[in-house]
């Protein structure tokens, strides 16, 4: 049916394989129309990266600012209570052949407990560099009153120079095994040269502090005898920062 005209054939053969190079704009147009998903993917990945970076920066900022004490002022009372509450001593003279190394172990044990309990209570931890070192150096002196065997008075005082003299301490655990020991604590805060002047000078402040410490020491010792974990002193009046004191300072 289809006639083969000579002129048709002539033209068909004549223009066979003829090519015209298109401009670059043609491919650009095709690429834009056929591969839009690629660009979207790239944009999505960029967005994802930005989001991840933002989250990381945000988290690190959060952690950093949470670890800062902020505007709250450190209350030295809290530190004292921590210290005195945790260290329970017995008179060195009443020790019956108990080696002196044992109390030191006790000492080392007890501060370990404190950071744990402070963690449980979600107290804020202050960076090491910001902790007032001198104010935390608290030492407890024991004044023996060997009127009864099982009853002693302890006077807690603070001073820096007599640290090395008086610490042949006895573990209360050793005694509690044999017979229930009743200890009477008398905590008297002595002159505190390192502290702010108005606190140490006022008698009333000392009195109230003494009562508090006494009550606290009783409860702590009760805890200690029965093997319960020691408690941190609870702030009464105003919210106070509780500071987990590092082991190196309590030793």
């Amino acid at each position: 049916m289809k006639e083969k005209h000579s002129i048709d054939e002539f033209f068909k053969k004549g223009i066979e394989g003829h090519q015209v190079q298109p401009s670059d704009a043609v491919w650009a147009k095709i690429e834009a129309a056929t591969q839009p998903q690629k660009k979207k993917k790239v944009a999505f990945i960029l967005l994802l990266r930005a989001a991840v970076i933002t989250i990381l920066v945000g988290l690190s900022a959060l952690v950093y600012f949470q670890n800062r004490p902020g505007n709250e002022v450190l209350n030295p009372d809290v530190i004292i209570q921590h210290q005195e509450g945790n260290i329970v001593h017995q008179d060195p003279t009443t020790t019956k052949g108990v080696s002196t190394s044992e109390p030191e172990k006790e000492k080392a044990k007890e501060p370990e407990k404190e950071p744990k309990s402070s963690k449980l209570k979600k107290t804020k931890t202050i960076p090491l560099m910001k902790q007032p070192m001198q104010k935390q150096m608290i030492y407890v002196e024991h004044i023996p009153e060997p009127s009864k065997e099982d009853e002693q008075d302890l006077i807690a005082t603070e001073y820096g120079s007599k640290l090395n003299e008086s610490y042949a301490l006895n573990s209360p655990k050793a005694k509690s095994k044999a017979a229930p020991v009743r200890l009477k604590f008398k905590l008297s805060p002595a002159a505190r040269p390192d502290y702010s002047g108005n606190k140490s000078s006022s008698e009333e402040g000392n009195e109230s502090l003494r009562d508090k410490l006494y009550a606290y020491a009783n409860t702590q010792f009760g805890n200690f005898k029965e093997g319960r974990p020691l408690e941190l002193p609870k702030p009464e009046k105003k919210p106070q920062i509780e500071i987990g004191i590092p082991k190196i300072f309590t030793n």
Binding site: Q19, V20, Q21, P22, S23, A25, V26, A33
Partner: peptide
């Protein structure tokens, strides 16, 4: 195939611009 097809398009459309648009 682009160059070949542009030649085809150009046979129908005369103008190169139109042919390139059809090509894309």
């Amino acid at each position: 195939y682009a160059a070949q097809m542009l030649s085809v398009c150009k046979r129908y459309l005369r103008s190169v611009e139109d042919a390139e648009e059809v090509l894309s």
